[in-house]
Amino acid sequence: MFVAEILKTKGNAVFTVTPDLSVAGACRELEQRRVGALVVCDGDRVAGVFSERDVVRALASEGPAALGRPVSAYMTEKVIVAEPREPMAALMTRMTDRRIRHLPVMESGRLVGVVSIGDVVKAQIAEHAQEAESLRTYIAG
C-alpha cells in the first residue's frame, strides 16, 4: 500500500495555520479540528509542524506565558515529509525511527495531505485483514 491510497481513504484535508498565530489560537484549532498537529504555512511554503507535543514543550518551558507567543517559537521547523508514491513500510520506518506522529505529504513541492501514525496503523490493519480473508477464501475454496 502507498501513501496515496491512505489519502484516498482518509481524504486530503490539511489544517494549516500561519507562523504568527498564538499558541492559544493553535490549541483552539487542534481542539476544534480534532487533530494532533497543524501544518504551519508561510504563504505556499511549509514552514513547520505544530503538534500537541509542541504545546506541552511550550508550557513546560514558559508556563502560561507561552500561550501568547507565536507557534513559530515552538513548531518543529525541520519538517520530515512523505510523498504519495511512497510505500507504507517506508513511512512506518521513518515515523518510528524519528518518533514522528504526523507527516505532511508533498507532491511537486505542493502540500497535498497529512498522514498520521493512526492512519498508517489503520491501513496496516485493513491490509492484513484483507490478506487473511483472501487466505481463508483460498483454503475454503
Score class of each variant (00 low, 15 high):
G36C: 07
A37Y: 04
L38G: 08
V39W: 00
C41P: 07
C41E: 12
D42L: 02
D44K: 13
R45T: 14
R45M: 14
V46I: 14
A47K: 13
S51Q: 07
E52H: 12
E52I: 08
E52D: 13
R53L: 04
R53D: 02
D54N: 01
D54I: 00
R57M: 07
A58P: 03
L59T: 10
L59W: 15
S61N: 13
S61Q: 15
E62I: 06
P64H: 13
A66G: 11
A66Y: 06
L67W: 01
L67F: 14
G68N: 13
P70T: 04
P70G: 11
P70M: 12
P70V: 05
V71F: 11
A73V: 09
A73D: 10
A73Q: 10
E77P: 10
I80W: 06
I80N: 11
I80K: 01
A82G: 02
P84I: 08
P84K: 13
P84Y: 11
R85F: 10
R85Q: 08
P87Y: 05
M88E: 05
M88R: 14
A89W: 00
A89V: 10
L91R: 14
L91D: 02
L91I: 01
M92C: 07
T93L: 12
T93V: 15
R94I: 05
M95A: 14
D97Y: 10
D97Q: 15
D97I: 14
R98W: 02
R99L: 07
R99I: 04
I100R: 11
I100F: 02
I100M: 11
R101A: 03
R101M: 03
R101I: 04
H102V: 01
V105F: 00
